[in-house]
């Protein structure tokens, strides 16, 4: 396959990623968001894999590196659900044990049974407004306008627009949802957008490696929130609602 075909395939996949992001933004409960997010991660892993193959044809080393990095979205795909489940259930354990519990099936099963009602409870607190969808559309238009006015090549511009709108949609998700888990979902969507941009838009060089490393760090931050901060928030306020976190003002 030549480079053009690769480019087109990646564009199509990226469009599906965008579609998932819009779905997430307009979904109201966490348990419906998770599969959508997982599909998005899978698509990103596919795009990364394609890019790696493309790079291997030109320069073996970089291609291999990118191939290894495609494991990151895959890993997120697998790990996100247990992480979110455990983070939604308040439990007073030390951070070291929290990581171990991720791989304990029994603990997970119990936690899941307690997490689902908690997520469903979010659903009733705030229905997704029509305004959110409108805002999303506006953000999308903005992203595409900016991207196409910047870059001449349509396929590249398209990818730039998609990753840019993923960033904006992530922000929109953070704005419209009221529970902490969905806020993290927003962060993760933004991270996907950046990952897409880093993989597809940077000319092949060492810079791409540096970029992907920095994105892994970004994922680490999110995990820090999930593993270290969230359980403490639970311990103290007993809820995952953002409105409850308003003691510090002015």
């Amino acid at each position: 396959m030549n480079a053009e075909t690769f480019e087109i395939i990646c564009n199509v996949l990226a469009f599906f990623m965008l579609f998932m992001a819009i779905m997430i933004s307009t979904t109201s409960t966490v348990n419906r968001m998770i599969p959508l997010y997982q599909i998005q991660s899978g698509l990103l892993a596919l795009i990364t894999g394609f890019t790696a193959v493309q790079f291997i044809n030109q320069k073996l080393l970089y291609g291999m590196v990118v191939l290894v990095f495609s494991a990151v979205p895959l890993l997120l795909l697998l790990i996100i659900k247990p992480l979110l489940v455990l983070a939604s259930v308040p439990e007073d354990v030390s951070p070291e044990k929290r990581i171990k519990r991720l791989f304990d099936k029994q603990v997970l099963g119990e936690a899941r049974q307690r997490a689902y009602p908690a997520w469903l409870a979010q659903c009733t607190t705030r229905p997704i407004a029509f305004g959110t969808a409108l805002l999303d559309l506006f953000l999308l238009t903005l992203a595409f306008l900016i991207a196409f006015s910047l870059v001449k090549k349509p396929l590249t511009a398209n990818l730039l627009a998609i990753s840019f709108s993923l960033l904006l949609l992530g922000l929109s998700v953070m704005r419209s949802k009221t529970d902490i888990i969905s806020q993290i979902m927003g962060l993760l969507i933004m991270e996907h957008g950046m990952f897409l941009a880093a993989i597809r838009l940077i000319p092949m060089s060492l810079a791409i490696v540096a970029f992907v490393v920095s994105l892994i760090l970004y994922v680490m931050v999110t995990l820090t929130i999930l593993v270290i901060l969230l359980p403490d928030i639970h311990r103290i306020s007993g809820t995952i609602q953002v409105d409850q976190q308003e003691r510090l003002q002015g």
Partner: peptide, 16 residues
């Protein structure tokens, strides 16, 4: 309580 809330806000806003 305050420290946790502050660090949550700090991390969310700065990473975004």
């Amino acid at each position: 309580q305050w420290a946790v809330e502050a660090s949550w806000k700090f991390l969310m806003i700065t990473t975004t």
